[in-house]
Every structure is written in C-alpha cells, then in structure tokens.
Amino acid sequence: MSTTLEQPLVAAYGLTKHYPVGRSLRQALRGERPVLRAVDGVDLALRPGESVGLVGESGSGKTTIGRLLLKLTEPSAGQVAFEGEDLGRLSRSATLRFRQRAQLVFQNPFDALNPRFSIGRTLTEPLSNTGVPKVEHADRVAESLRHVHLGDPARVLERMPHQLSGGQLQRVVLARALVLRPRFLVADEPVSMLDVSVRAGILNLLRELRDTLGLTTLAISHDLTLVRYVCERTLVMYLGKVVEDGPTAQIIAKPAHPYTRALIRAVPRPYVDQPRDALPLHGALGDAASLATGCRLRNRCPHAFDRCAAETPPLAEIAPGHRVACHLHTT
C-alpha cells in the first residue's frame, strides 16, 4: 500500500467500532442486538510526517476514527498500532507515553479551555501532569507559543481565555497540544467555529506546522476546501468505510469513487460562474444501523449494477498511492 518501506507512525487493521442501538420488541424477542456500524473494518496507515485529511458527512464515522486512533475509545474489533505497538496492549507507563506523543486539537476553542485558568496555567498543566521537570516549563511554554505565533509571550501568559479572540484561543488550543512535543496530532474540525477572516490564519499555521515540525497530522473535516489547503493526502469516508484514499490534488481533480465525485461537485464555490447541475447521486444518506452486504452507496449510485449488491467492494489500488472501493474500478 505504501510507496516506501518506512514503518507507518499510525496504522489501523480491520478497525471496527459498533455502538448498540435501540431495538424493537420483535428484535428483542428474537434475541437480536442491532448495532450502529460507526466504523466498519477500516485499514489505514499514516507515514511519519504525513498530513492526511479525513472527510465525510456527519454520521460517516470520521470522528470515531479519530477517537480510536487516539485510544479515547476502544475498538469493537481490529487494532491500532502506534510506532509499531498495539494500542490495545500498552502497559500503564506506555499508555502515558502514548498520551504525550498523540494529541487532539479540539473543535470548539471556546469550550476546550478552562475559563478559570490563565493561558500560562493552561499551557503548564500538561507539563506538570506528565512529569516534565519544572525548570523546563518556561522554555517549553515559550517554544509552543512561538510555534503558534501568539505574539509577546509575557503578555499572553497572564491573560484569561475570555480576554482572547476566537482565533487567539484556537492558537492556545494548538499550543497546548504542541507543548508536549507530540509526533501525532488529530485535529477534529479545527476551524469550524471560527470566522472566515480568522480561519485563514489558523489554516496557514497548520500548513506551517506540517512543514516545520514534521508532525504527522490527521485533519478531520466535512470541509473539502480545508483539507485541500492543508493535507497532502485525503481519505473519504462513507457510512463507516473508507471509500477513497489518495493524494489530495488527484482526488479533487479526478475523483474515482461516485460518492467522492458527488461530494466535490456539491461544494459551492466563491464565484458566480460555477456549475449548478444536479448531483450524480440520489436520495439521502443511508442508515448505518441497517446495512446489508454489498456497497453502501448502491441505492444512491447512478452506476450501481448487480455486483454492487452482492459483494462489498474492497479498497483497491488504481494508481500508485490511490485506492478506491468501487466495483467500477475492479476488473
């Protein structure tokens, strides 16, 4: 799958997360336990230094994947490996080490920070919690503030969250994730709460961190334009499955999966002269609780044929580094 022999930093094998859902009386009498297949058998590998976007609509399972990769929730089946170690078998001390190396950037900066902690305390706390010697704290905090360009550290440290703007708060949230010098960063909708004029600064910052710190990042978003701007590679999810995976530029220019094609065509553009023809997809998002076999898009897909109902299409390589789960591409 990978074009190099380098070991992936993060890898998932058959990753699955099912949540129990309410059942009808009939199902209960039959002893059935219906589940919502939030994530259903996903294989993926993130190489060191790679910035990957994970896109999909709400309910596609993208946030659940982020939580599984960070060990914030346990898989129902399959496994996640970080630096080659199975996250399900980490010792206590290894778990603590993992928690420093893999960080989450929250979606809503207004909720992510304790309103009663100064910015200085917010940034020092992770250091004390993980036993970083006190003499290093000031330097580490200053370093993380430099990374996010928060201006004069002396002035920022004493501020309280309510004294900062949304863009500044999101920089603090990023600085807090960076203060532990992580190798892996998961950013779940990192700019969705920010205004357009501020958003651009955070997107530029994410690009810069990718280039200067060599971080491996997974940006989870419903917004393809964000992923296009920040990520070299993109994974597209539909109802718990990865349906397309490849270089972002290639996916946007030549989407191979019918779902990706519709997703890209649906994005409105910031100029008047743009395509407005009907999307090549019908109906609404399916239901992840009641999925039969076969391709999950088949009822909405204009190209569906008999094989789509019979067999689940595997994620297969159609060009170097570009994989698609669609029978149109398998011969």
Binding site: S197, A200, L203, N204, T225, Y229, P270
Partner: peptide, 19 residues
C-alpha cells in the same frame, strides 16, 4: 480581505491572507 481569506477547492497555489 474576505475574498483573500476564503479558500477555493481548486486554487491550491494561492496563499490565504487572514484579516
């Protein structure tokens, strides 16, 4: 400024400028 800060799906070369 708003137009400069707004990413488009196809123009990846352009650098966004925040206000």
């Amino acid at each position: 400024g708003l137009m400069n800060a707004f990413p488009d799906l196809e123009s990846d070369e352009a650098v966004l400028a925040p206000i």
